[in-house]
Amino acid sequence: MTTDIDLKRAVRAATTADLDLAELGDAVSRRAADAGLLDLAYAEIDSPLGPLLAVSTPAGLVHLGYPNRPRDAQLEQLAERISPRIVEAPGRLDEVRRELDEYFAGRRHDFGLALDWQLTAGFVRAVLERTAAIPFGETRTYGEVAAAAGSPRAFRAAGRALGANPIPIVVPCHRVLRSGGALGGYGGGLDVKRELLTLEGVL
């Protein structure tokens, strides 16, 4: 007599097997990238500051998130602002991981990564592009960065622009301080700013 219970057991036995989600994600992201469908690839990258959420588009690194914001909230915001075609694909972030590892080990002063600036526009983008040019181990004031971006009196707006930096560390907004030398603010938390400046020998 074939009962529902027999049937369930037999069907489950034939259809259940281990599934390696990481392996599946890698295979899917490879095929998706080949088909031009991988709008956003992400990976968590270990760092002395905790796990960083690195996200790239085909154009380059578009977002680097600190652990003080929930990962899912960051991804959902990117889904809305850029595309919901987001796949965890650590292999696509290998270069980012390598350069960040070298930076934290003190072996890299300049990043060579391709950046995707699409989350920024206007004055914010101008401020961040100027900030990207501040050399390792040096600092600027908010006023100096505002001036470099074309609006010397807009130091408060410059502060907000730096607070909206989607690619911290690589775009080194931690190198921008108040004119008296006070740290100012930082999206990843002031402890993180202090740690980065210490790593760079500023503090």
Partner: peptide
């Protein structure tokens, strides 16, 4: 507006079982 990855995490096991 949900990242596609969360669909993989939530449903890939079921889809795999169906295909098996």
């Amino acid at each position: 507006t949900t990242p596609f990855q969360s669909l993989i995490e939530a449903h890939a096991v079921a889809v795999a079982a169906f295909l098996r």
